[in-house]
Amino acid sequence: MARTTGSWIEGVVGAPLPTSEPLRVAIHGIANRRAFYETLAPAADPPGAVVVDDAVTLRNGSTTLTGELYRPCDDQGQPTPDTLPVFLFLHGGGFCIWNARMVRRAAMRIAAAGFVVLSIDYRLAPENPFPAALEDTVYAAHWLRQNAERLGIDLAKGLSIGGDSSGANLTAAATSYFLSGMTSLTAAEHQDATPLPIHQILLLCGIFDLGKRLVEKTSGPGTTEVMVNLAYLGPQFLTKHSDPLVSPARADNVDDFPRTFIACGSADSTLPQSLALTATLADAGVDVTLSVFAGGDHEMLLLAENQLPGVDAEWSRILAWLSA
């Protein structure tokens, strides 16, 4: 009989998850894990929002970038015509797996609170290592500004940006990049474009210092060593851990970060990362809010209330903060 992870996620998705052991051996194990998750249907859409486009194209060519676009809807399920603030959502998956469809429920919760939400399918490692995912994040921010009128975006309210796990890392890294004057990424498409100013950021169960993550006793076997370090950063990953675009907690401009909400489960192996970043931002005088979801494991905020009691209450706290 094939071994499985025994993870709580198996009960949620109704299928056994493959053991992560291949990841400890070789990067090619990532392909099997990615393929498995892509066979799963997304969670049911939450009320109050609608998928406007599940295959919006931001960029064509050798480096295609697509995503999903959501808006609030009326009682008949029709998207509201209002001009709204915008939120850029970045999915998790250790920089190597998952996609916008898999985190649709979380992103649509934000849309239902009164945002135009773009959730992108940034390029994944190992096929596209650092900084490809970050470049796609930056490109998406430029694209939102350039298409604001067509999308019904209120430019005066700036850009809210957030994500889960590796998406939270990309959120913080992009924030540091924008604050630095946008000089450290060399892709030509970034040089003459001005993004929306960052209004606020939402960081869900993120990883923010990859050097510390490697030696934390709660570091996930396989995921940290192979997916995050070898696949995303490459064989010389130790030389990149101090780069603020890799470990944004080490950025020298954290004191300029916008208002920040950090959420993580108390049983999440990444909790030390959230606690440490909260302390760093607070010490720098940033308006930062920390919420620790009692008993929550990694990525549990992607679930529905009937799958895990307390999810709705945590999202109510998050959405109230976003809308303040």
Rank of each mutant, 00 (worst) to 15 (best):
P248T: 14
S165N: 12
L40C: 03
N32R: 15
N169D: 03
L214T: 12
P72A: 10
T224W: 01
T270M: 07
Q236V: 00
S266G: 09
L210D: 14
L124T: 04
T137C: 01
V226Q: 15
Q200M: 05
T280I: 09
T223W: 08
S119Y: 03
P221Q: 13
A156S: 15
I27E: 15
F115M: 01
A55I: 04
A251E: 02
F95P: 00
L308V: 06
M102G: 05
T57Q: 09
A2K: 14
D82I: 00
Q78S: 06
L151D: 06
D312N: 14
D256V: 05
G163W: 02
F89I: 02
P47C: 03
L301D: 08
S274K: 11
T66I: 08
P42M: 06
T64Q: 14
C205M: 11
K240L: 07
G206D: 04
L134T: 06
I9P: 01
V288G: 00
S274W: 04
A41Y: 06
L90M: 02
L319C: 10
Q78P: 01
E68S: 08
R259M: 04
T5A: 07
R259E: 08
V254P: 01
P129A: 10
G77F: 05
V51M: 14
D136Q: 01
Y70P: 01
Q200K: 15
S119V: 04
L144R: 04
E21W: 07
T63E: 15
W98F: 13
Q273F: 02
L308Y: 11
V12P: 01
L233F: 03
F208G: 09
I153R: 10
V56C: 07
G114D: 13
A35W: 11
P309G: 06
N147C: 04
T218R: 12
D252C: 09
K217M: 07
A156H: 12
H142S: 11
T5L: 08
V12E: 10
L277Y: 00
D252P: 10
I161P: 02
L202C: 05
A141R: 01
L124A: 04
M227N: 07
D287E: 13
T278Y: 10
R213W: 02
V228F: 07
Q78D: 09
C205Y: 15
T289M: 03
A324L: 11
C264V: 13
M182E: 13
F293W: 09
V52P: 01
G158Q: 06
Q273K: 08
V311R: 14
I262F: 02
A173E: 09
A188F: 02
A320Q: 15
E305I: 02
